[in-house]
Computed example of a mutant assay.
Amino acid sequence: MDLQLNGKTAVVTGGSKGIGLAVVRLLQEEGVSVVAASRRTTPELEETKATHVAVDLTTAEGASHLIERATAELGGIDLLVNNVGVGDADDFLRGTASLTDLPDDAWRHTFDLHFYSALWVTRAALPSLVERRGTVVNVSSIAARLMSSGAADYSVSKAALNALTKIIAEQYGEQGVRANSVSPGPVSTGVWTDPDGVLARMAKAQGASHEDFVKQTLQGLDSSTGRISTPEEVARLIVFAASPNNITGAELIVDGGIIKEL
Rank of each mutant, 00 (worst) to 15 (best):
N180H: 01
P184C: 08
L199V: 15
V182P: 00
I228C: 06
A241F: 04
S229T: 04
A179R: 05
P244H: 09
A242T: 03
Q216M: 06
T225A: 08
S181Y: 07
D222S: 11
E211N: 04
A235G: 08
W192K: 04
S223H: 09
P184N: 08
D222R: 15
M202L: 15
G176I: 02
P231G: 09
A235K: 06
D194H: 14
K215P: 00
A203I: 11
L237Y: 05
V187I: 13
K215G: 10
N245W: 09
L221T: 09
G207I: 01
T193G: 03
D222Y: 10
M202I: 04
S209L: 08
P195Y: 00
R178N: 02
N246S: 13
A242G: 11
A205K: 02
G185Y: 03
D222F: 09
G226E: 12
L221V: 08
L221M: 15
P231L: 08
N180F: 05
R227P: 00
S183Q: 12
P231S: 10
A200Y: 03
D212A: 15
A241E: 11
Q219C: 00
L218C: 00
A205N: 05
N246I: 00
G185T: 01
S188A: 15
V239L: 10
L218E: 01
V234L: 11
M202V: 04
S181N: 07
P195T: 13
L221P: 01
